[in-house]
Every structure is written in C-alpha cells, then in structure tokens.
C-alpha cells in the first residue's frame, strides 16, 4: 500500500505524539491531538497508508505506548527515521507499526507518494528507491503477525 510522506524533523517526542493532558481518554480522542504542536493539521489530513519520515531520535521521552498507537490509529503505515528512541521503537514493533531507520536523502519532499517494504528494507518512491537498514528476523516476525500480542497468541494457543 502506498501513501503520502509527512516530513518531520529531529527529536519528535512522545508529548507531541500523545500529549499528557489527553491521556485519560481513549485513543480516538488522544489521536486527534497527535503531533498538533509540530503540525496542527496532521490528524485531520493524514490518511490510511501515509508514512512519516523523520530525522534523529523519533519518539524520545515517555514510555507511553499511545505515542505509537495514535499513529497506527490514524492509519500511518510506518515511520522511517534516521534514528529512534529505544522505548518508542519497541512499542511500535509491539503494536505492529513498522519502524525502519536509515540515511534519508534530502530530496524527499512532503506529500510525495511512497511505499515501505519491511522485508526488502526499502522505501519505494515513484522514481527512486531508498535502501534502509534491514530488521532482524525476530522483529519482522512480530510485525508480520501484527504485533506482540498476536505473536504471543500463537504461543499460548
């Protein structure tokens, strides 16, 4: 599935992804405020299949899983960043939200159409391909199952 790119900068933190004051409600209410301090129109304009492209240390801060859950709820198909904060990275995988890192070219433009392939580790654009760092097999297995709970269900079945 392809979608549009939302280009974001470095150090996008979990308070931007899932603001603390909206944490007591459900994910639907919280997701409406996802990234509103960085990009006020984000929740209204993002569509299923869209991708986030960001700089260094995406997801810094809290362990709140809603940071990844809000993106998934809004239909984001994956996040590609130069680097990720460790807890966010684990959370995203556990929720089945693909996260991949790599050196991203400056030529990527906001709104450009792209598709993420986690098995081939590439970001496919209309006219070029960006190679990403391959994921370990155990992480691909969790993502393929749709997250940790679905993955563990097989074990408890």
């Amino acid at each position: 599935m392809s979608g549009r790119i939302f280009l974001l900068g470095d150090n996008i933190d979990t308070d931007q992804l899932a603001p603390g004051q909206y944490m007591k409600g459900g994910i639907e209410a919280l997701a409406r405020h996802c990234l509103e301090t960085a990009r006020p129109d984000f929740a209204d304009t993002v569509a299923v299949g869209d991708l986030i492209i960001a700089g260094r240390n995406f997801g810094a801060g809290s362990s709140r899983e809603q940071a990844a859950e809000a993106l998934k709820y809004l239909g984001v198909a994956g996040v590609v960043a130069q680097s990720f904060a460790g807890i966010f990275y684990r959370n995203a995988i556990n929720l089945g939200l693909p996260v991949m890192s790599g050196q991203l070219p400056d030529s990527l433009t906001d709104g450009e159409v792209a598709e993420l392939d986690i098995e081939l580790a590439i970001l496919q654009l209309s006219d070029r391909t960006v190679a990403l760092e391959p994921l370990p097999d155990n992480i691909i297995a969790i993502l393929r199952d749709g997250g940790l709970i679905a993955h563990l269900k097989k074990r408890f079945a």
Binding site: G61, S62, S63, R64, E65, A68, I87, R90, N91, N94, L95, G147, L148, I149, L152
Partner: peptide, 25 residues
Amino acid sequence: GDSHSCTGGAMGAYMFGVGATDMAG
C-alpha cells in the same frame, strides 16, 4: 512501565522502561 524506570540503576539493578504491550508480554 515508565520511561524513568532506569532510576533503578542507582541501586545496581539493570532496570529499564517498556510500554504496555511489552509489559503485558
């Protein structure tokens, strides 16, 4: 289940924060 869980390192415990799904696991 909190990002500042690394505080436990002051007592010589290897302690780190995880999210809710990780914790459920």
